[in-house]
């Protein structure tokens, strides 16, 4: 192993993580959560067409490879006149993806809140909207922290797919260093190590968050 190459490449690769992977993850996760909450509420709305629409969305997102979704958006859409840069394409594809998976997590979390909580909220005079916002969603948020953290960590790794539509993130930087040097093994091991460190840090954060939320456990 060429240790000098490791030292030379780790900086640029980590920088790719800092300026590519991490912002891509954060943007996609935030947008994806908004989509997911909307879809989860649509699913439990009791309005047939709305919940059908959400069900179809979730099914399609979960039933097709993310790489194909990326290709459709980046390579396919220009044919119908919608041309997007790599970054917006990647953010759209990733957040649609998070939206599909997290919607089911949030829906399950909302449904896991006992009926008695809705009733107690109604008893004190809350409307359904107030009951949802003040009583049910805060409790559902706690229930969904562990599975959503897993989604978040998976997302970090999934952002590497954006390299194929030329987004300058961690893996793309590594590819650009590896190609001229021919040192694929070393460079890609460096890339893997940087991903691993990011995920380790996130897993530690997840652990702390869960322990903090445990204080209010029922």
């Amino acid at each position: 192993m060429d240790w000098q190459l490791v030292l030379d490449s780790i900086g640029p690769v980590a920088l790719g993580g800092l300026t590519g992977t991490i912002p891509l993850t954060l943007a996609s996760f935030s947008l994806g959560l908004v989509i997911a909450i909307g879809m989860a509420l649509a699913r439990i709305s009791g309005i047939a067409w709305l919940s059908g629409l959400a069900r179809a969305y979730i099914s399609i997102i979960r039933g097709t490879p993310m790489l194909v979704q990326l290709f459709v958006i980046f390579y396919g859409m220009p044919q119908i006149g919608i041309t997007l840069d790599p970054w917006p394409s990647a953010i759209i594809a990733l957040s649609l993806n998070v939206g599909g998976y997290a919607a089911e997590i949030i829906r399950a979390a909302i449904l896991s809140i006992p009926r008695g909580q809705w009733e107690a909220a109604a008893m004190i005079g809350m409307s359904r909207g107030q009951a949802l916002g003040r009583i049910v969603l805060p409790q559902a948020a706690r229930v969904s922290v562990p599975p959503l953290s897993n989604t978040f960590i998976s997302l970090v790794k999934d952002t590497s797919l954006a390299s194929v539509i030329l987004v300058t993130e961690l893996l793309r930087v590594a590819q650009r260093i590896a190609a001229p040097s021919g040192e694929f093994l070393t460079i890609y091991l460096v890339a893997a190590a940087v991903y691993w460190v990011i995920c380790l840090v996130l897993a530690a954060g997840q652990d702390r968050l869960e322990r903090k939320l445990d204080r209010y456990a029922v």
Partner: peptide
């Protein structure tokens, strides 16, 4: 009317004070 439930149905994410005041403050 106001109800006391068999299984109390207190709001687990609110303190005791929060449970008692959320109705008067947020609803009334």
């Amino acid at each position: 009317s106001a109800m006391v439930f068999q299984q109390h149905h207190l709001f687990p994410h609110l303190t005791v004070l929060g449970n008692v005041t959320v109705g008067p403050i947020r609803v009334q």
